[in-house]
Amino acid sequence: MNKIEVKGVTKVYNKKTKALDNISITIEPNKIYGLLGRNGAGKTTLLNILTTKIFPTSGEITIGGEEVFENDKVLGKIFYIMVDSAMPWAFHRVFKRMKDFYPDFDIEYAKELADRFDIDVSKKSKVLSTGEFSLFKAILALASNAEILLLDEPVLGVDPNHREMLYKEMIKNYSEKPKTIIVSTHLIKEVASIVEEVIIIKEGRIIENNSVDSLLSEVYTITGRADNVDEYLRNREHAAVDGIGERKTAIILENKQNKDISLANKLELEFGNVELQELCMALTEDG
């Protein structure tokens, strides 16, 4: 199977900027991962290293136990949507030529998707809007039938209607032909419902690598009077505290089963669930 193993990968730019700092993760096959983090956290660097677009300063990457660098067999299993990658031909030509690069490319499916997403495939990439171009690349990714899809900001510039359609299509495609999908995006709310696993990167280090369910079961919120919230937070690990006026909300990094209900009742605090986006923001904020 195509398990992706990243072992101790560090990437340093210009001998001083550390984009990735000794990262080690295992990406299980046939799951949808969300690669989350703030700008400059190292998400794109990691994807670029996975596909050998750039080289790690140290560490190694294997896919299915094989080295990736200059390994056509492995690289041919990956379709990578880079944010700023251009296409060499007009789109209808790309469709025709895709089989040379991805032998399992389904041209009929690609045409059908292009039709559904209102993409004029006779156009050249230069005359397409950013959103149309993003959709086109997403169509190529889905129709490539590659075993691993790396999608860096796949819906950049895409309108909400088409974004929704694309997410649905992605799920449909995934359920029919399971594959490993890694989505790197800032639109966390939108992908929260499609990702199963989450990797959160902060300043080049992985701070979370867990399933969405298990990650969200390890956190909860409390809301109430500021001094009561502070009282509850005493000796508890928390990620973020937000307050308006005398009221405060805090994210507690503790399993929901360990909630101190009696204390919360005494302090007149309300419990709540944490959304993936909230948690990601809380975990990656400065300080």
Binding site: E70, M82, A86, P88
Partner: peptide, 16 residues
């Protein structure tokens, strides 16, 4: 320079 698009868009190996 122009052919670098192939490396970027289609994961072609540097040997190819």
């Amino acid at each position: 320079d122009g052919n670098l698009k192939f490396l970027r868009a289609f994961n072609v190996t540097r040997k190819k």
